[in-house]
Design a protein around this nucleic acid. Structure first.
Lengths: 346, 346
DNA sequence: CTGTTAGCGCGTTCAT
DNA sequence: ATGAACGCGCTAACAG
């Protein structure tokens, strides 16, 4: 079944293919009555335009290649959703590549070569498909500089940092500052931190935000209140035991992800320290499960949707040759639930 | 910058474009030394083939359109991952459309017209992009028959049911049967059910599986042990209160999703009924949070990855003109954790 | 068997 | 409003 083309429409309507094209795209004026004839022919033959042919000539596909390091990691779907939100508004399409990094290389991100070939291969395929631009979504924030070559095609990275290309991240420093400020407003001053690993950029930025709050609010500070975790539940559990064994234990812990916060709450429960009455806990990420914990976890929500959207905005600007550096950095938002107690100011 | 084409390669290598094409695709024999010249020219000019032009001629894009009703719903990323897994193996690409139904229409699935236009619009766009086939991923299992017209393009639905098209679902009946069998093996006989809403196909199938187990294992049966929930936590909470107030309360509850199981465990805790010692709970879905509950929830894992993969397999068969009906139905798998107690057989 | 010529796929767009 | 070239690669037909 040869599908009907613009030619069929042209002959049926008794006009040239050029005219049909003009009607289709509104590229030029067409006398109303011929236009009507064309429209009717399109209707009767149930004509469906072929975007492939169009793209070939226009040298534009209106398609953005999205490379996700792993769609099954919690941050990715919401970022994709933000990308789609933008794409819908501007009639763009998404060619999705899923690197499946978690399944292929696990957590072995030390070895960059190990996944660089996947990333570069994905880019090459997208380039062959003539995407107009590329968005790269990492699985955890790290330096992605020079990971891939796009041969001049615009690219924006998100959930990762870069030196020379545009990358969209949320404001880690501010988030930690605000989380700490919130604890202060609730009357806390002996505030501990369980951070992620120190080779992580977010860990360092958040620590900066925390220290800025310590300074600004003139909080007491004890180096023993800063603990370095590894993002996993077990480390939250162990470090909380250490913190609660201190002669002068904190009344609140700022935990740099919700997964470790689970360990914090488990340790507190086992030690008979009620949360939030004697220990307040504030997490990071607003993972789905944080709402199902007991007590429900207060945590910083990541602006994932906004990051996806902003990535597309940045990409669009780059494609238009405009600067993209001034796009506002998405900010985190505190989700107040039940794991932080208001302390009587004494 | 005019990108280099097959012509540039041809002239640089001193051959015709046909020869270059033959080298590129291995479509015909080329003398090794000319082949080498071509390859070298490709290398030197850093030539990147244009798949758009290729697709136009071949009338094949090696691209599958995937329509997700909502990528932020828990089932979707894993299904997409399964689709990608298949696509990687067979050099297919994925054009993703995200209907964003949750954000656009909430839970208003009664009103089919409300979202049908989004679905149909997505299909039309994909068709214009000349995808070779379509996979449609629902957000909850319901009858999707006739939702969209694909004008003869192959389509497979998953996470939903259809009458005339191929759809891939997991085996709900079997899953419920096995969950119940597991409880029986652990020594339970007074088993209650908190189902989802009764207009839901999975609810009915699972109830069938449960009843088959009741019959097969000759379990005592009390109609008061069958409760109809609405998939939300609150209903699990309320119905568990009812169940535990019964003169002859169950020792175990089969709950048709993990979200309601949270309510079950909450009610039990408040009533001072320890889980699993006095009440065993088994959930459905293996949501991420189920592993963070206290106690960790035993639940049925959904074969989402396998469903995505099977959808692509089915699609490939249809595209080859083969029957796809005999593709094995993916099965659920019990994730044994800590919410079910082994009862002493008495 | 190896290589070339030329038309084609389906719309777009410029010159007429 | 139209004819025809064009985008880029594929492939049938043909030649050596």
């Amino acid at each position: 079944m040869a599908s009907i083309s613009i030619k069929d429409i042209a002959s049926k309507a008794g006009v040239s293919t050029a005219t049909v094209s003009y009607v289709l795209n509104g590229t030029r004026n067409v006398r109303p009555e011929t236009k009507a004839r064309v429209l009717q022919a399109i209707e009767e033959l149930d004509y469906k335009p072929n975007d492939i042919a169009k793209s070939l000539k226009r040298k534009r596909t209106d398609t953005i290649g999205v490379i996700a390091e792993d769609v099954t990691v919690f941050n990715t779907p919401e970022i994709i959703d933000g990308i789609n939100d933008y794409a819908d508004r501007y009639d763009l399409h998404i060619l999705l590549t899923n690197l499946r990094l978690n399944k292929r290389i696990g957590k072995d991100f030390e070895n960059r070569d190990r996944y660089q070939k996947y990333a570069q291969g994905a880019v090459d395929e997208l380039l062959r498909k003539q995407v107009d631009g590329i968005v790269y979504i990492g699985v955890h924030p790290r330096d992605l500089t020079g990971l891939i070559h796009t041969h001049g095609k615009p690219i924006v990275y998100t959930y990762g940092y870069t030196q020379n290309d545009v990358s969209i991240q949320y404001d880690d420093e501010k988030a930690a500052f605000e989380a700490t400020s919130y604890l202060v407003r609730q009357g806390h001053s002996r505030i501990a931190v369980i951070s992620g690993m120190m080779d992580s950029i977010p860990s360092r930025l958040r620590l900066n935000g925390f220290f800025r709050a310590v300074t600004e609010f003139e909080l007491p500070f004890d180096p023993g209140w800063i603990k370095i975790g590894d993002w996993e539940t077990e480390s939250g559990y162990r470090l909380t035991q250490e913190l609660l064994a201190l002669p002068n234990p904190p009344t609140a812990i700022l935990v740099m992800n919700d997964v470790m916060a689970v360990g914090v709450m488990r340790a507190a429960r086992e030690l008979g320290v009620p949360v939030p009455e004697r220990l307040s806990v504030i997490g990071f990420d607003n993972r789905e499960f944080s709402d199902y914990l007991t007590p429900r976890l207060t945590t910083m929500d990541l602006p994932l949707h906004a990051m996806g959207y902003a990535s597309m905005e940045a990409l669009a600007r780059i494609m238009r040759g405009e600067p993209a550096a001034d796009i506002a950095m998405p900010v985190c938002r505190l989700v107040e639930r039940d794991s932080v107690a208001r302390l009587a100011m004494s």
